[in-house]
Design a protein around this nucleic acid. Structure first.
Lengths: 199, 199
DNA sequence: TGAATTTCTTGACTTTAGTCAACGTTTTGT
DNA sequence: ACAAAACGTTGACTAAAGTCAAGAAATTCA
């Protein structure tokens, strides 16, 4: 993990402006709260059992958030590609141990914000709070929808839906990660693909 | 659905104070943004396909949030008992059609806030925004955990976990609602219970 | 580049859960 | 209080998905 000072902050600013309009001159001050970090493929960014030190915006690369249960089985709950936000805010803010692992699937360039700076951003920039709140509201709704899909749709349907929704993901992450995210075994996903594409 | 003017706002204030401290005198102003509503058993509070007119705090009773898929299958994604918040904020705020149904399982006494008042509360009371944001952050994490449970745990384990986490719920909602919430068929839940309790 | 590692596929079998139908029990509203 | 409706249980069967094991294919990185 190495730090670099110079890089292009346009992507970051653009992504924020998509959600909210930032008063002139405020982005620079806001941006100072963030730190650039670089991770290698397979490197752990945050580990379960530790207090998350920062929260993340993905500039480049792809990472996975997953949980390991008592039996040692992994379950991926989120993929963060470019322009995505990821982290365990409740645990970072309350300084408690997270249950989630965050690992780089590819080489990653990240912007990170630590707990103190997060609280500062929250206190100083109302537009940030607003964007954040709106984002979380939408996300929670999406997660509920996803839960209902797990209840009522077969693995095959969920696979086809994900393929439609995030085709690029399938080009960059191993198939067994997709299986884990869909909540099916790698073998089952292999058979689903055979059934769909072979005949 | 009838309106009543007088009722005890203590429960509401208490629940807020649990999360955040409210500056003296502000609760009353905040409270004016809310409206009391009464619903009968089985009454629909908000329906899928409509724009949600308000968001809810439950004073008394219990309601369910569920989604119906293309095949007409229902899937319950949330139960709101006393002191719980429920609604489809993204759709209410953006005035778009919600996919969720909200129905009273019992006689319900609710506090509701409409879209305009919600935005006002958000603009005028920073403590409200803060409580809200923190609440959503935790909730999203919980939903992710729940998704992982759906991936890796059997129906039986999920049933036992829910029984432990929310024992009171089993005393007030029909068993097939519990099944729907757990993502299993009513028959399967019946068999799980037989297996656990009979032998 | 090529050995080591990881990933994917396939077969055989098991487990878990769903479906359909029938029937008994409980709850509800009038 | 009672008829109607909703709910829960059970059996027999089916479907979906998991597990284990072996081997083929692809990828990685030294």
């Amino acid at each position: 993990m190495k730090k670099i000072k110079e890089f292009d902050s346009t992507l970051f600013q653009e992504e924020l402006q998509k959600r909210i309009s930032i008063p002139v001159g405020e982005f620079e001050k806001f941006f100072e709260l963030w730190e650039f970090k670089h991770f290698k493929r397979n490197e752990f960014i945050l580990k379960a059992g530790e207090i998350p030190k920062f929260s993340i915006f993905v500039l480049k690369g792809c990472l996975r958030q997953y949980i390991v249960n008592e039996k040692g089985e992994e379950s991926i709950v989120y993929f963060a590609e470019e322009r995505h936000w990821i982290g365990d805010l409740p645990c970072m803010r309350s300084k408690t141990i997270s249950n989630f692992n965050f690992q780089a699937i590819e080489e990653c360039e990240l912007l990170t914000i630590n707990a103190d700076n997060w609280e500062q951003a929250f206190a100083k920039f109302p537009w940030w709070t607003e964007a954040h709140l709106t984002g979380y509201q939408k996300w929670a709704s999406m997660l509920q929808q996803q839960m209902a899909d797990l209840h009522t749709k077969t693995g095959e349907i969920r696979y086809l839906n994900l393929l439609k929704a995030k085709p690029a993901l399938f080009q960059r992450v191993p198939q067994h990660f997709i299986a884990s995210y869909l909540g099916i075994s790698p073998e089952t996903l292999s058979r689903i693909r055979k059934k769909i594409f072979n005949i």
